[in-house]
């Protein structure tokens, strides 16, 4: 019996039950940077154990949606629940991977040190880093194929290697919900393959993965669910459900050729 059925039996309305079981449920989220809204009245319900791509054209508000849901940007209105509870009570279950370009890679620190940052909630202000913590960090580096780089300064890495280190930091957190902002931006093909393999292994372990993604061509191959957005939410569901000719047209407007839309909606 699924969690959804259980919740419904406990007397919740289906909509409320869906929110209660969703790893990340957003209702009425609106963010504005100036006078124009960046995202407007977005509802999104992530399915437990799914791999969801947040898709949309440039400036559609994909990263903004993620940041506002996590409280990094203050929204004008809207609520987020994580596993049916307020965000603040569930932070230990969330791992967030920001855009690689959002940090200064010249920062004086090593690869292992960055991964250890993922253990902050465990280490707190003053607890000493023990060998068990180092082992967690090295194991995470091994999963992304970066164990040999543990002592490198992070500025000496390639873009793809930096992205893998960010993913390793998220793995070290041991979370249940993984939120990644453009994890494939500016990385080499080998890294893209390595990252998707790790994400699929997370899904196999019952974890939930949500990633901002902009390569329409690989959505179907990498993800099982998609959320289309262009400031307003456009479509949500399995990739096949979300990728209809109408929704792609609505999200991308004139930016996609008719032939592309046909190919994508048929593939879905």
């Amino acid at each position: 019996m699924t969690a959804l059925n259980l919740a419904t039996q406990n007397g919740l309305r289906p909509e409320a039950a869906e929110i209660a079981t969703s790893p990340l449920a957003i209702r009425g989220l609106t963010v504005s940077y100036g006078e124009k809204p960046a995202i407007f009245s977005v509802d999104m319900t992530i399915r437990p154990g799914s791999m969801t791509a947040i898709i949309g054209p440039n400036g559609a508000g994909k990263s903004t949606l993620l940041k506002a849901a996590l409280g990094i940007i203050r929204p004008l209105s809207g609520q987020t629940t994580v596993f049916g509870r307020p965000l603040d009570t569930q932070r230990a279950r969330i791992a967030y991977v920001p855009q690689r370009a959002s940090v200064d890679w010249d920062f004086p620190t090593t690869v292992l040190d960055v991964v250890l940052m993922g253990l902050y909630r465990e280490l707190g202000l003053l607890r000493l880093v023990r060998s068990s913590h180092r082992k967690t960090a090295t194991d995470a580096l091994r999963r992304v194929g970066m164990a040999d780089f543990a002592d490198r300064q992070i500025g000496q890495l390639s873009g793809g290697q930096q992205q893998r280190v960010f993913l390793a930091r998220a793995l070290a957190q041991g979370a249940d919900l993984y939120l990644l902002d453009e994890p494939f931006a500016g990385v080499d093909a080998a890294t893209e393959k390595a990252i998707i393999a790790v994400l699929k292994s997370l899904k196999a372990d019952g974890k939930t993965v949500v990633a901002v993604h902009h390569d329409l061509a690989t959505v179907e191959q990498y993800f099982d669910h998609a959320f289309l957005i262009n400031v307003r939410p456009v479509a949500e569901g399995t990739v096949a459900e979300a990728f209809t000719a109408e929704s792609l047209q609505a999200a991308y407007g004139g930016r996609l050729a008719t032939a592309q839309i046909d190919r994508l909606s048929q593939a879905g």
Partner: peptide, 22 residues
């Protein structure tokens, strides 16, 4: 000394630090 870790993490990656709850 006391705020070494939060200072380091938030200086390097503020968004990540915020999601940790800092």
């Amino acid at each position: 000394w006391v705020f070494w870790r939060p200072l380091k993490i938030s200086t390097f990656d503020e968004g990540f630090a915020q999601v940790l709850g800092m």
